[in-house]
Amino acid sequence: MTDSRMRPLLWVALILSLAANAVASTIGATVVSVVFGVLTLACGATLVVGHYRHRRD
């Protein structure tokens, strides 16, 4: 999968996992919240790494 196809999917995954994390935290599902939190961090970190790798000097 090319980087141009991956970025929008990562953004969608980031937003959905962020929303799921907020809902899970609100209802008190700690384990589910941690899973979605880690997924959110992974998506965000991947987007940041991609940004720094492909930015122009």
Rank of each mutant, 00 (worst) to 15 (best):
L10V: 04
D57L: 09
H54T: 09
T26S: 14
L10K: 02
A24S: 14
I27D: 06
S4V: 12
G37T: 01
L16S: 14
G50W: 03
C43W: 02
R5N: 15
V38Q: 01
A42G: 00
N21Q: 12
R55Q: 10
R55T: 07
H54R: 13
V49K: 07
M1K: 09
L41E: 07
A20S: 07
V38H: 00
V23K: 12
V32M: 08
N21M: 14
L39C: 06
V12G: 02
L14Y: 09
T2V: 10
F36W: 07
A22R: 10
A42Q: 02
D3H: 10
T30E: 14
V35Q: 02
D57K: 11
R53V: 13
L47I: 08
G50H: 02
I27W: 13
V34N: 05
I15H: 11
L10N: 02
S25L: 14
V48H: 01
I27Y: 11
D3A: 11
L14E: 04
L10R: 01
A20L: 15
A29Y: 09
I15W: 08
I15P: 00
L18D: 05
S33G: 15
V49G: 01
H51M: 07
V31G: 03
I15Q: 11
W11Q: 13
A20T: 06
V12S: 07
T30D: 15
A45F: 12
V32Y: 07
H54A: 11
R7G: 03
V23C: 08
L9R: 05
V35M: 04
L41M: 13
L9P: 00
V49P: 03
T30Q: 15
S33D: 06
M6G: 00
A24G: 06
R7M: 12
S25D: 09
A24E: 13
V12M: 08
S4P: 00
L16V: 14
D57W: 12
S17A: 09
R53A: 14
A20N: 11
R53P: 06
L18C: 07
L18T: 10
A22Q: 09
V23W: 15
S17I: 03
G37S: 00
S17M: 05
L18W: 09
H54I: 03
A19C: 15
M1H: 10
L41K: 06
V49L: 13
V32S: 04
A24R: 11
A19K: 08
M1R: 10
S4C: 04
T46Q: 05
N21R: 12
L16M: 15
T46W: 08
T2S: 14
V34A: 12
N21D: 04
V35P: 00
L9M: 13
S17C: 10
G44E: 02
C43E: 01
R55L: 12
R55Y: 10
L39F: 06
W11G: 03
A29D: 03
R5P: 03
G44A: 08
R5K: 15
R53K: 14
L14T: 03
M1T: 09
V34Q: 05
L9T: 03
R55P: 00
A24D: 12
F36I: 03
L47N: 02
R53N: 10
T2H: 08
V32R: 01
C43T: 03
A13N: 09
V31Q: 08
W11K: 13
A29W: 06
I15C: 05
T40D: 01
L47P: 01
T46P: 00
A42R: 01
V38I: 14
T26A: 15
G37A: 00
N21K: 11
T40E: 02
N21W: 10
